[in-house]
Design a protein around this nucleic acid. Structure first.
Length: 397
RNA sequence: ACGGGCGUAGCUCAAUGGUAGAGCUCCAGGUUGUGGUCCUGGCUGUUGCCGGUUCGAAUCCGGUCGCUCGUC
């Protein structure tokens, strides 16, 4: 019997702007969720299928990751919502008590479409097209080839069941280069889907689950502006920028941020999806972005590419892109190198293991190697965000 | 001592008379809301050595050196 059950309050402050930099558009923020508050700018490690590859939830927590990202599309295929519902939601299922953001599946449709277009699928995989319509997206399961239909409502419904703290709207991401007309259609469809998503969520949610919309429009400034304006008229909990870092020059990406971020609601989260390299993250923070996610630290770890700060000083000279370096651990120069990846890193890997040992683990294909360097790369990315927050606090960035 | 087998890239081996190759190693790149423990390139050769046959030899023949197995 819970007599003191507090009803969900829509009016509570969910996003707090702590500080605005005077040197750039960078900001310190606090995003409040029922699984805890998140200090921004922050980075979300990727747990597509409900796991940061090679790590336990406890390990990710001990790295001080404030939030992780999972994926609607992958989880609806396997294990399916029935299992997760029975487990009591995704948090309980994967033993992660902190916030979770779930991506909607729109990007997976785009990615699959690209693979079909470029003939990158293996013979066993079906060469079926991805079809976008007003109603939603039709594509085929990678698991058993079964036809799958994802509408904006369906995507939200699944994310409600997953229990994610931040729900992403279904969107249409276009492959670059893409002509103006097609880009415009995709952008407008994404906005209509965002409205439908919100209507569905407001009718069906029973607890604090935020909804983020997604700005589209390719590399056309006019379309990006229209997208941002249209979405800003609707009261979403956060504003994501999608469809970037998909092959366009970095300069283009920053130009889009320069024109879009200033017209997003100031008192809401700004999320740059899928980005990026360390220097890109810093540049985006300076343009007013609060949230990031990217596969780079975890995927590159598995491919033997490690990240290391070059300078001890907290000052990031990001314009010269010289504040970090890359180590390819399989290079023979590390065969006898008994020092840690980074002497100044306090991660579990650097405290206990040498480059020579990590190289040995990679050369012999021991899965422990993947675990240890994934831990380090995430420590690097999360440490980068910590430095960024500190520099904004100190008025440096 | 006799008989058989083998000798090709740093390593393991392909190529049976017609442009000397692969895998691993090594080196250099790449990876951006994970369908990826992956992808792209690059370096490396007096084919043990000497001679012969042939338009042409890693390949066939003779010799020689080395390794290996077997028999006495």
């Amino acid at each position: 019997m819970n007599l003191f059950k507090i009803p969900f309050q829509h009016h509570m402050t969910q996003f707090q702007l702590i500080k605005k930099s005077k040197k750039s558009r960078a900001r310190l923020s606090l995003l409040k969720t029922s699984h805890g508050d998140i200090e921004g700018p922050f980075f979300m490690p990727i747990a597509t299928k409900g796991a940061i590859k090679n790590l336990t939830s406890e390990e990710v927590k001990s790295l001080k990751s404030q939030i992780i990202l999972s994926n609607t599309y992958h989880l609806m295929l396997r294990p399916g919502t029935t299992v997760i519902k029975k487990a009591g939601g995704l948090h309980k299922f994967i033993n992660w008590n902190s916030p979770i953001l779930t991506d909607s599946g729109g990007f997976q449709a785009y990615s699959l479409g690209e693979r079909v277009r470029n003939n990158l699928l293996t013979k066993e995989q079906k060469l079926s097209e991805v079809k976008f319509s007003e109603e939603g997206i039709e594509f085929y399961s990678e698991v058993d080839g079964k036809k799958i239909f994802l509408s904006p409502e369906k995507a939200v419904e699944i994310q409600i069941i997953l229990g994610s703290d931040v729900i992403m709207v279904l969107d249409q991401c276009v492959a670059l280069p893409c002509d103006y007309k097609k880009t415009k259609q995709a952008m407008e469809l994404t906005t209509r889907w965002a409205k439908r998503s919100q209507e569905y969520l407001l009718k069906n949610k029973t607890k604090d689950q935020k909804l983020f919309c997604i700005v589209q429009g390719g590399t056309y400034k006019r379309l990006r502006l229209q997208s941002a304006k249209d979405l800003a008229k609707i009261n979403f909990d956060g504003y994501a920028i999608g469809g970037l870092a998909v092959g366009e020059p970095r300069k283009k990406m920053l130009e889009v941020l320069d024109c879009v971020v200033p017209i997003l609601p100031e008192n809401k989260s700004h999320y740059l999806m899928g980005v990026g390299k360390p220097e890109e993250i810093v540049e985006a923070v300076k343009r007013g972005i609060d949230m990031f996610d990217c596969v780079i630290p975890t995927r590159n770890a598995r491919h033997g590419t490690l990240y290391k700060f070059k300078v001890k000083s907290l000052k990031l000279k990001v314009d010269e892109k010289d504040f970090y370096e890359i180590i390819r651990i399989t290079n023979s120069q590390f065969e006898f190198d008994l020092q840690p990846i980074d002497l100044n890193c306090d991660c579990y890997t650097c405290q206990n293991y040498s480059r020579a040992y990590l190289r040995h683990l990679f050369m012999t294909n021991e899965s422990l190697g993947f675990r240890l360097v994934t831990i380090h790369n995430l420590a690097f990315y999360l440490g980068l965000m910590e430095r960024i927050r500190k520099e904004i606090k100190e008025g440096v960035l």
